[in-house]
Amino acid sequence: MSNALNVRTMAECLASGEVPEVLFWVGCSGSFDDRARKITRALVKILNAANVKFAVLGTEETCTGDPAKRAGNEFLFQMQAMQNIQVLNAYEVKKIVTACPHCFNTIKNEYPELGGNYEVMHHTQFIQSLISEGKLKLKEGGEFKGKRITFHDPCYLGRANDVYEAPRELIQKLDVELVEMKRCKQKGFCCGAGGAQMFKEAEPGNKEVNVERTEEALALQPQVIATGCPFCNTMMTDGVKNFNKENDVKVLDVAELIANAADL
């Protein structure tokens, strides 16, 4: 398949008089992190394949402020939020899709009070709607058919926003064996990155949180650990490396699994 992605920015759309139906909020991880950029590209391929009229903010996007807020810097958070809301409102954005549960949570739950009201969807929810509307077709028996996959619930998608089924229903469409960890859904165990932990060393303890969680996942002997968050992806990938299992177990985003099954 071609590597060329069809991506337009809101500024380009405005200049050509187009009104995209949805804004893809890429997030800092999806923009800058080497691993997360692959997730971003997978999602864009899906959006292109489904002929979704979408746009990104490009260089006009900045951090939602989530890590600052969770780390107690409310000033910085609200500065970021108001700046983003000004941009989003100027483009009259109605609907936002994002592959980062932290951005998803912040824009959905914390922006409205500051003047930013949008319909916000996590990419797993959005992809699910594309499939159910017949806009995206998966091919029979993709690369992952029959494989053992476990899904790690991102806290900011699951407990924070009660989204447990969308990612699971997508995984089940792949004709795979979905196995659940004991601590899943409401009882899901954090990967260790939330609350700004991603950006600092952990406090002294007897184990790293991501090692504890990866150990639980690996006990199920999966071929793939799936997740729906770039931070969880980093933490689980590091966890798998910690157990020297990177050749046996892949850590993949649900969007990557779907892009593969749609032959993109």
């Binding site: 992605l5 991506v7 920015t9 890429v26 800092c28 999806g30 923009s31 800058f32 992190d33 950029r37 971003t40 590209r41 864009v44 990104v56 490009g58 260089t59 996007e61 900045t62 951090c63 402020g65 890590p67 600052a68 910085l76 970021q80 991603m198 950006f199």
Partner: peptide
């Protein structure tokens, strides 16, 4: 975040580089 609009030290100008790689 204050200087680059991201929690890491990347240039905001590079934010959409992923589209061309």
């Amino acid at each position: 975040i204050e200087n680059n609009g991201a929690p890491w030290q990347f240039s905001p100008a590079d934010r959409i580089n992923w589209a061309n790689e």
